[in-house]
Write a protein that binds this DNA or RNA. Sequence first.
DNA 1: TTTGATAATTGAACAGTGTTCAGTAATTTT
DNA 2: AAAATTACTGAACACTGTTCAATTATCAAA
Lengths: 203, 203
Amino acid sequence: MGTKERKEREREQVKSQILTAARELFFALGYEATSIRSIAEKVEYSPGAIYLHFKDKDSIFHELQIEGFHLLNEKMAVLLAVSDPFERLKAMGRVYMQFAKDYPDYYDLMFVIRAPMRALEDDEEWQAGETAYHILIHVVKECQSVGYFNNVDPETFSYYVWATMHGIITLGKHGRNKVVCEASRNFIEELAFQEFVKMLEKK
Amino acid sequence: MGTKERKEREREQVKSQILTAARELFFALGYEATSIRSIAEKVEYSPGAIYLHFKDKDSIFHELQIEGFHLLNEKMAVLLAVSDPFERLKAMGRVYMQFAKDYPDYYDLMFVIRAPMRALEDDEEWQAGETAYHILIHVVKECQSVGYFNNVDPETFSYYVWATMHGIITLGKHGRNKVVCEASRNFIEELAFQEFVKMLEKK
DNA sequence: TTTGATAATTGAACAGTGTTCAGTAATTTT
DNA sequence: AAAATTACTGAACACTGTTCAATTATCAAA
């Protein structure tokens, strides 16, 4: 009697439907504006039914967050094609920036929005989130082995590199600074990135 | 017949009371958790009365945001005591970082939270927000005049410097990355800042 | 096939949010 | 004292996330 297995499958399917609806609404309306009720309506269930598959709103977006990390890791795969360590580091910056530009909502969920992060404490799934950072540390170490970044702790330096990229990505995005108008944002971010690369080259 | 002036004064006073209540609640509970109703209760008015003095919730926090900018500008005053341009630039970074640490809620309101920023579009009061950035550009130019940062556009470079500081400040704060646990956050941010300073020194 | 148990689903309710507005109360002017 | 102006209230609206008793559907055993 494989009815139990089938039920299990059906449950997974419903859960996946909810997740799909949540994803679409999230990309269209953002985190705050995506309500449980709107998700429920999209999958044609009652609001209460959502809570049969997810503990709360956060845990829905936690899954989307994990998706984001996996997607970022996939994007990082192109780095394998770059053999020179420093070139690879630069390419990594490019990929990271492009990811933030292509999926601003994922980026917010992963690195800006406070709420859903709680959910991934003491969680092995966080490995997905760690990976990119570990790759960064690895690449930095490789750079050191070919003469870059001497007399520097690779972990600290990696964190600094990450922070810089994060700053370039988020400074103009949130709280439109007027200093940089919407139109020229991409441009100045690109320039800031190039500035950063120039700095790295001289080390 | 100074009744009109008195009424005006009374209105200002009530507005200031509301602002004070909002500020206290905001620092105690954060932006989201500070409700119009809780503000109203604190000043012993009905919720509707708030809207006699402020257009909406955003415009209340807009005023607090301006406060934050003014406070930051005040903190920047110590820079006048530093004569060497590069030392002044470093001190500016320190002040900015300390401000973010001392008043994290102000910082969020000013540079992270999306919502209240809308309110200060086409607003002369934004000058308060511009000031610090203009000081930064000025200091960078001074640094250039004594041999630092050659062959670099000062505005772009300033933006890059700002973005780096912003990144160092915000990366660990939002979405506790687990990569850096709560306890060691201050430490790694300090190290990242020092790393940045080292980079700048070599330019 | 009917019964009893189990699982799935609902929809109303709770306590909260920002915001509006008709109605009331206080104040000032005539 | 009456009229006009201003200040203020509090109920209501349309939302939010979340819970839970009641209902319905599904399935295993008799």
